[in-house]
């Protein structure tokens, strides 16, 4: 088996999940310049809501993908409601406050959601029932499972849909205009509050799907799963250039690939001194490197434009 090809496949799968989550960070940042640290927790809630649905529907003779689709269909509205509420309660009242205030509010929401989830789902790791077979397909020297294929396809579809929405529709144009100059967008008749709420709704819907995919992929979930995933996705957004949609997609995929290649080769390259368990360190080292060498990210605009 070809390690490089295999890790590339695994990296793209993991990276496409990062990308879906990173889009939520980058969209919110683009429009209100806030790092929504609670976004990882929205992904976690999406994953656990799906888990509850999937557990209830498993072993009833339904098709496995049907059960997972049902999980997604329930978690999307749940996460959208949650994202909408977070913006209303924790961010909107602070829109004119100093920038540190909404950031602290975001961290507060993040902790509150973790504890709430612990109350609902408990503190143990929960296992996703295996409702889909892990049928392997051979692809050159690598193996790709049905779950991986579905994750790739779903992520690609959602990203294409989002791109269309943002670039080609009236709503998308209003979102871009609001991100560039909210006061003038208001003069054009755009209800800026509604655009901001819509941004949270879209990001949360993507988070719900990402959460379900993560759970299905790794088969485990618990109330803290959103933290590391959120941090990684945020890293991906910064890597690509925060505020930039293509950047979040590219950053997510790149981070996934680098992490997995790292996991595949770190052990061999260092003679076993540093093992594959250091792949997380690799991703945060990358964040530091990007911030030092290219603070605006790979596809980010130069910040001078904000004058």
């Amino acid at each position: 088996m070809d390690i490089f090809l295999q890790q590339l496949v695994n990296g793209l799968v993991q990276g496409s999940i990062y990308a879906l989550v990173a889009l939520g960070y980058t969209m919110v940042y683009g429009i209100i310049e806030l790092v929504n640290f609670a976004h990882g927790e929205v992904v976690m809630v999406g994953a656990l809501v799906s888990l509850s649905v999937i557990q209830r529907l498993a072993d009833r003779g339904l098709s496995g993908w049907g059960v997972i689709a049902a999980g997604i269909l329930v978690s999307i509205p749940a996460c959208m409601a949650l994202g909408f509420a977070i913006e209303r309660v924790a961010y909107r009242p602070l829109r004119r406050a100093p920038r540190l205030a909404p950031l602290i509010s975001a961290i507060g929401v993040s902790i509150a959601l973790q504890q709430l989830a612990a109350l609902i789902w408990g503190r143990n790791f929960l296992h996703y029932p295996e409702v889909v077979a892990r049928t392997p397909f051979h692809l050159g020297g690598a193996v790709i499972t049905e779950v991986q294929l579905v994750i790739l396809a779903t992520a690609a579809l959602l990203m294409a849909g989002l791109w269309f929405l943002v670039q080609r529709t009236r709503l998308g144009r209003a979102m871009r205009a609001t991100a560039q100059n909210p006061a003038v967008a208001g003069l054009m008749g755009v209800d800026v509050d509604r655009i901001i709420a819509t941004t949270f709704l879209i990001g949360s819907a993507l988070a719900a799907v990402a959460g379900t995919l993560v759970g299905t992929y790794y088969n485990v979930g618990n109330h803290t799963m959103g933290f590391l995933l959120g941090m990684k996705a945020f890293t991906a957004a910064v890597l690509g250039g925060i505020g930039n949609l293509q950047g979040a997609m590219l950053g997510g995929l790149l981070l996934g690939v680098i992490e997995n290649l790292g996991a595949g080769y770190l052990g061999n390259l260092t003679g076993g001194v540093i093992g594959s368990n250091y792949s997380d360190v690799l991703s945060f080292l990358m964040l530091v490197a990007v911030l030092v060498l290219r603070p605006s990210g790979l596809l980010g605009e130069r910040s001078a434009e904000k004058v």
């Binding site: 009236r170 209003a174 871009r176 205009a177 054009m188 755009v190 434009e305």
Partner: peptide, 15 residues
Amino acid sequence: FPRLTVAENLDMGAY
């Protein structure tokens, strides 16, 4: 809007 095209800016005027 600096990163919208000229045509998109005009479209925004008719929003």
